[in-house]
């Protein structure tokens, strides 16, 4: 009886989910269609000419070939992700495992800092980057980007480390492994899903970064996000050739989809469970 009740009510939830996802799905569908059609609606590949040649775009604006921007974006996103995980893991492990003064306060600070909006700190970052001479460099943007998202990722990662039982570390100690060996061979593997979440998220967030690059890098269109931004900045937005923009956007989301396919198995496997605990 109960089972049927459940199914009866379920359609409402389904309906809601369907409608909600339409909001997301429709723009993507529109993008797919536009990328391969002329404004008149005929099939064409001409929207993709930025793949191999400079393309006159609109009102004298010439789109460069997109590949250098793709490469810059890839490097920017990868560097962000690697730096992020590289700082997050040891810091989170330390906060989770070691006893030191101010440990609790530090954790609280992480939570507050995580909630700070980037925009509120822009002036500060301008100042810092100017002072240390990293204005108009990608190193500077990576620095700001990672700095902004570290508190959140450290906090998240600490949670994963907290889940690893002390017993495992102790067992390894009795078995003769050094703390570092234990960390490298056992603990890291136990928090793999957490690291994957942070790695993927920070890569995607780096790949998607628009505002910081636009602000701190003077040249235009040097990453895919700002490449697309170029078209937006053109005046008279009503007449923008949507086909070209859709094509560029499609190229932009492709790595995101690829990354998801590659990493979904790890991401979905949040708990590995080494022992049956009560």
């Amino acid at each position: 009886m109960k089972h049927e009740d459940k199914i009866k009510g379920a359609w409402k939830i389904f309906l809601f989910t369907e409608v909600a996802s339409l909001v997301v799905v429709i723009p993507y569908g529109w993008m797919m269609v536009k990328a391969f059609t002329t404004p008149e609606g005929a099939f064409t590949l001409s929207n993709w000419s930025f793949l191999y040649q400079e393309t006159p775009f609109f009102r004298g604006l010439v789109l460069p070939v997109i590949w250098p921007s793709v490469i810059t974006s890839l490097i920017f996103a990868s560097t962000t992700a690697l730096l992020q995980i590289g700082v997050t893991i040891p810091t989170a492990y330390t906060i989770s495992r070691m006893q030191f003064r101010g440990r609790v306060q530090l954790t609280k600070l992480m939570i507050i800092l995580d909630a700070f909006p980037t925009v509120a700190l822009l002036i500060g970052f301008f100042h810092v980057l100017n002072t240390i001479g990293l204005m108009n460099t990608y190193a500077g943007v990576v620095f700001v980007k990672v700095g902004m998202s570290l508190p959140g990722s450290i906090w998240l990662m600490k949670g994963f480390f907290d889940q690893v039982p002390w017993d495992i570390e102790w067992a390894a100690m009795v078995d003769g492994a050094s703390r570092f060996t234990t960390f490298r061979k056992i603990i890291i593997a136990a928090v793999k899903p957490g690291s994957a979440v942070i790695l993927v998220n920070s890569f995607l967030s780096g790949w998607a970064e628009y505002m910081l690059i636009n602000l701190f890098i003077y040249s235009n269109g040097s990453t895919v996000s700002t490449f697309i931004g170029l078209m937006l900045d053109a005046e008279g937005k009503t007449a923008v050739p949507y086909g070209v923009m859709a094509a560029a956007s499609l190229l932009y989301v492709l790595p995101v989809i690829l990354l998801f396919i590659v990493s979904q198995k790890t991401l979905l496997k949040v708990s590995q469970g080494g022992s049956k605990q009560l």
């Binding site: 039982p165 061979k185 593997a189």
Partner: peptide
């Protein structure tokens, strides 16, 4: 150990 503390990986 009580939890056996096997290395899960």
């Amino acid at each position: 150990f009580q939890s056996y503390a096997l290395y899960p990986n």
